[in-house]
Design a protein around this nucleic acid. Structure first.
Lengths: 419, 419
DNA sequence: GTCATTTAATTCAACCACTGAACAAATAGC
DNA sequence: GCTATTTGTTCAGTGGTTGAATTAAATGAC
């Protein structure tokens, strides 16, 4: 049995922009019902779905039959119900159907994980290594090995991988080429070509590339969206060596005209400030990037590996180290000025601090909120929530895997047609 | 014959998020075909539409029959074609069907206009008057009178008004209440209530309010979108007394969580700059607002009415008045810093300068582009276009009227069901 | 001038998916 | 055991699309 790869991109529009043929009706209702099952707290019955969606029970039954046949949905154990009547058979996402493979390349680690339809992480590997001195080809080779092991493990658990997504800390174009990943030292790296020796990651199925490559900040934001703890629109700021942001609007990632949205690290905080290596002046990264915080805290010479720096900062902050507290307040103020701009522009009510910022949220939040309150015109009527991300350090990998299964949930028709 | 009002909001999602019943199919295809007719350069034939949409010619014929019966589409004069074959009958949006009423209240004028389905402005009235000393109730009374005259004129031309939208220079909530319009001096003005004496503007039809109230910058951006000269995603900056922006993403206005997006005037340019009346410091409005430009140009004492200030600036700039040129360069730089932030964040490739900025584009563009090139990470690969708005001074009124007819084009089913 | 050719639009039987109502299944309460 | 109640399925009916055949209206060759 061959593995089916059908991921063609990370954002899922779910709107049938094109022609609405006869069968589209079924496709839309498959997506509708499956979406409700995915969103429900406890396994809903067919009758409940009918009441919820407005479809008739007959239609829901037919739709569910398709979904069960396609291994997307299973019936839960018959739970004892209160009151009279035939007991409902609860429906839930299948744990043994299609799954998504999520990959991540970052400055100091590689990660691979597998997430099933229900959102459970079924496999997770992190390979710590400084990737800066390694060539892109070699790094991708190591990644492919990780991917291969993840696949074996997934299949041993009865899962079928339905696609893969890869997060990188840089700008990615439509073809999956990494145009620029400054902190990794990559420039114009043709990821799909370099992975050509690993067919499962590159062989096209029906002309669709199996591997989606995207910015890690975008994928981390998607992961946060799918974790169910975030609202439909929010800004997710990833504080790694650089600072990236994922923008989620109305339940969908906003990727911009070329897919290069979220470059929040180079928003000018002080237009006449010190020069940044991007060519601008006074960019946010100069005030709230990892190096800037370490240097302001007097830890510049320590030369910590990137993943240690964050934990070290948290420890010192918890110990109320004065220079660290000051550095975090300064960083928070700079983030707050930038976030105020974003909120004035987009009217978002939630900001999620992710990556290295997540454990520092307790210290960053006060100055961020202070700047928002000072600078956002509508802050008085609509308070802005600032909270830490719920996914851990490899949020991008989990988000990448989640994006694959979310795509199936948003358009089950494509998956079912392949059986 | 009664006037039918069916406008319920300005943004048009067009996606059938809910249940997909039997009839939804027809509704979606009505929207699909009508949308293609609206977007086409020259009147397409049924056959061309079939090829374009992927529907069969039979289906297109049936759909078009409905659209013609509903007065949304008419057949164009049979144009002589090249080559053999039965001549195609071109289809175009009807000029005598439903139309939209657009209204605008601004600091120094009231405007009303009527736009037909094809986007033609069929009626246009501007009433110049300083609205600051006038009470909101009285201003709205004058507006209702303008609206009444527009309606009479529209009906004399055989048009049926299908809804109305009103643009105001301030923040509007879901209920149509103006929460804050600083330059007008309004605060918590319940527009629908104050218009209660003018039933055509407030009587609900099927529980739907006939009048949508929105920010003028949003409506001006929509007008620009519908004029067909702008791409699917762009930033529209309205330079009036204040500075507002409309954000169009993927062909739809982005309104934010509460509908208060686009407050670009209070994005901090210099976080430690002079205090702004919004409570923040160094806001864009302090560097590129009308007063700031006039003051920097040494024209602060002139006390020109708002509409004159813009023309005066244009004249002086054309005459190469040194202080004015300097003031415009300074303003353009501030705008450029802000736009750079927006482009870094959203990856837009087009910025439209509207309102008072439109005639000044020639002088504002160079400094804006210079800042973008310095500060936008991706500027080297994807150049940003900065261009003037194509609609005139009352862009918001035209955009408001356009939003009404665009809603019908996006969801013709609702309109047809009312016949 | 006639006729083949070509393209446009309509007609019609077939089919697909949803609807609504009737029916079967499974439980609680009396 | 019987009824009430709720779940889920079956089935005839219907709306809307499909695809092929047919009609319509022009050009161009002879």
């Amino acid at each position: 049995m061959t593995v089916v790869w059908q991921c063609q991109g990370v954002t899922s529009p779910a709107a049938p922009a094109g022609a609405v043929r006869q069968g589209s009706l079924r496709e839309l209702n498959l997506a509708l019902v499956l979406g409700r099952i995915a969103a429900a707290r406890r396994p809903p019955s067919r009758a409940a779905l009918a009441a919820d969606t407005g479809l008739t029970r007959a239609t829901v039954s037919a739709v569910v039959e398709d979904l069960v046949a396609g291994r997307l949905v299973t019936e839960a154990d018959p739970t004892p119900r209160a009151g009279a009547g035939r007991p409902a058979r609860g429906l839930m996402l299948a744990g043994d159907g299609p799954a998504g493979l999520g990959l991540e390349i970052n400055v100091d680690y590689l990660a691979a994980c597998v997430v099933d339809l229900a959102g459970q992480v079924r496999h997770h590997t992190v390979h710590r290594a400084d990737l800066r001195p390694v060539s892109p080809a070699e790094a991708l080779g190591q990644l492919a090995e990780l991917a291969g092991r993840a696949r074996v493990d997934a299949e041993a658990q009865g899962l079928t991988l339905a696609g893969a997504a890869l997060g990188v800390p840089g700008l990615v174009d439509d073809a999956g080429r990494v145009r620029l990943a400054p902190n990794l030292g990559w420039r114009d790296v043709p990821v799909p070509e370099l992975l050509a020796d690993y067919p499962p990651l590159t062989e096209r199925v029906d002309g669709v590339p199996p591997l989606a490559v995207d910015n890690e900040a975008n994928l981390a934001a998607l992961g946060e969206l799918h974790s169910g703890t975030a609202p439909g629109s929010f800004l997710h700021i990833s504080g790694e060596v650089g600072i990236g942001a994922g923008i989620v609007l109305d339940g969908a990632l906003f990727r911009g005209t070329r897919g290069w949205s979220g470059e929040i690290g180079h928003i000018p905080v002080r237009p006449d400030g010190p020069p940044c290596r991007c060519g601008g002046r006074g960019c946010l990264e100069l005030y709230a990037g990892q190096e800037a915080i370490l240097s302001a805290a007097g830890l510049a010479g320590a030369d910590l590996p990137a993943d240690r720096a964050s934990t070290r900062l948290t420890q010192l902050a918890a110990a109320e180290h004065p220079a660290v507290l000051h550095a975090l307040t300064e960083a928070g103020t700079a983030i707050g000025v930038t976030v105020a701009s974003v909120v004035n522009l987009l009217d978002l009510d939630t900001v999620v601090l992710g990556g290295g910022y997540a454990p520092l949220t307790g210290w960053l939040r006060p100055p961020v909120l202070a700047e928002i309150e000072r600078r956002v015109l509508t802050a008085a009527w609509s308070p802005v929530t600032v909270r830490p991300a719920t996914l851990g350090a490899t949020a991008a990998a989990v988000g990448a895997a989640g994006s694959v299964v979310r795509r199936i949930i948003a358009r089950p028709g494509g998956w079912l047609a392949r059986l």
